[in-house]
Design a protein around this nucleic acid. Structure first.
Length: 453
DNA sequence: TCTGGGGTCCTAGGACCC
DNA sequence: TCTGGGGTCCTAGGACCC
């Protein structure tokens, strides 16, 4: 889940569009967006909740992060704490699930593979676990509408996941199209084209600025304060104005995109993450240093696995811990946190080496007597791991350790999480997050296959 | 009592260099 | 009294995304 908007190479201002130049200079982007993805995944293997209200909870069963349409119409809001919504949920028999990322990740791959089969691998940019941009400038304009329907029906048929499709001349307009398509499902059938100028104008007029991709909470309230409330009004502002008020070049791009001039092109295949983080709330408050260390060691092994999966090594590691605040104020998210960072003498992806530094960092920031609710590990300065291909300058022990890690990764992946692990990560892990309502990982674990009786 | 996790990009400003 | 100009690199912080 990453590749947000644009990097410098997406900046197409003042340049012809590179790479994706189409026959008639026409650009056509589609966004395919899974409908309430996590809930839809849960329904795949539990048909008893089809048509019933469903929600999926964040880690630690904290917040609501996905809602079915039925749950939405009961007034269950996105992002609210579970305990606040609990009464509505129980009263209406809403089925709640803990998040099951193994399942969602696997289903996501199937959806993306379907899209690649439909338009070709090089025309698909996976934007997040439940969304992908497609480049459709090879499709005859006459056929676009039926093609959108074909995409929707094929994904539904092959994977069981309902999707919406928005099509327009730019990515930003395509996002608006899919949003409107979802909103007016009955009329649009979940596919919508914003190619005609008049249709575009109407769509932008009924889109609030807060609903535009790239306008978050802070910009939205700023815009409204300046009297700009609709997408259409924003579209008609000068680029130079956007430069000063909406974050410089980012704002300029946004205005161009809204006018139908592509300023964000397709992103190249991911070349690996620049930062890898593993952070978690605890299932209960933690005060003991050794428990804190267990947790941080566990997160470090997880982060190291991610690092090895993309065949990289890191030279920077930082650890943070968050104390439980005394008074449960509104801005609990902005709680102070204590961070320590270390630069490693040599880039590594070995769990034991990373854990060793992490432990020192925990000791640095821990204060006895304090109570903590969350901790995290971040790996930075990431670059390709050369030792795996054999680095003459690295000692043999480093290399064989790297092979050992691959073996551990293989066992843990094929068997079950953490069959093989470092003792420092703890055996009992009573601080672990709560996940009381998790469904089975029936598409990725042999021992959790769906049984039909 | 209880409030997610994991990313990206851009800008401003300081340090440093010639 | 008066004290250059411009480049690069790095970091922190702010914005955004799902």
């Amino acid at each position: 889940m990453n590749n947000k908007m644009s990097s410098a190479d997406h900046l197409a201002i003042g340049e012809p569009q590179s790479g994706s130049v189409s026959n008639r200079g026409r650009s056509v982007y589609a966004i395919v967006d899974c409908d309430c993805f996590y809930c839809s995944c849960e329904r795949l293997f539990d048909p008893s909740v089809t048509g019933k209200p469903v929600v999926v909870l964040s880690n630690n069963d904290g917040c609501i992060i996905s809602r079915s349409d039925e749950a939405k119409s009961l007034g269950v809001r996105m992002g609210v704490p579970y305990f606040e919504a609990k009464s509505v949920i129980e009263k209406n028999g809403v089925k709640a699930f803990s998040s099951n990322y193994h399942l969602y990740g696997d289903i996501s791959m199937r959806v993306m593979d379907t899209l690649r089969a439909l338009v070709g691998r090089e025309r698909v940019e996976v934007y997040s676990v439940d969304e992908a941009f497609l480049r459709l400038d090879h499709i005859d304009p006459e056929r676009l509408e039926s093609f959108a329907v074909e995409i929707r029906d094929t994904v539904q048929c092959w994977t069981g996941i309902p999707v919406s499709v928005g099509i327009a001349a730019t990515k930003t307009l395509a996002k608006i199209a899919s949003r409107l398509a979802k909103k007016e499902k009955a009329r649009t059938g979940c596919t919508l084209l914003l190619l005609d100028e008049e249709v575009q104008r109407k769509a932008l007029m009924e889109t609030r600025v807060s609903g535009i991709w790239g306008i978050g909470r802070s910009y939205a309230s700023k815009l409204i304060g300046l009297g700009i409330t609709s997408g259409w009004e924003l579209r008609n502002m000068p680029e130079s104005w956007a430069h000063t008020h909406l974050g410089g070049v980012v704002g300029r791009r946004l205005i161009r995109e809204l006018r139908g001039e592509p300023a964000l092109t397709m992103r190249e295949e991911l070349d690996g993450k620049k930062m890898i983080a593993t952070t978690r709330m605890f299932g209960r408050p933690v005060t003991a240093l050794n428990e804190l260390k267990e947790a941080v060691a566990t997160y470090t092994s997880r982060a190291a696995e991610k690092l090895r999966r993309q065949q990289c090594a890191a030279t920077e590691i930082s650890v943070f811990i968050v104390p439980r605040e005394e008074n449960y104020s509104l801005d609990f998210r902005n709680a102070p946190q204590f961070t320590a960072r270390a630069t490693l003498s040599q880039a590594t992806s070995l769990t034991n080496e990373l854990i060793k530094s992490a432990m020192r960092l925990v000791e640095e920031i821990f204060s006895p007597g304090a109570t903590y609710k969350k901790a995290g590990v971040m790996l930075g300065k990431i670059r390709p791991d050369v030792s795996i291909q054999g680095n003459f300058f690295r000692t043999d022990s480093g290399r064989s350790n790297r092979y050992l890690m691959s073996a551990v990764d293989n066992v843990n992946f094929s068997m079950r999480d953490d069959v093989v692990k470092f003792v420092g990560t703890g055996l009992d892990k009573s601080w672990k997050m709560r996940q009381e309502l998790r469904s089975k990982r029936c598409s990725t674990r042999w021992d959790e296959l769906k049984e039909i009786t």
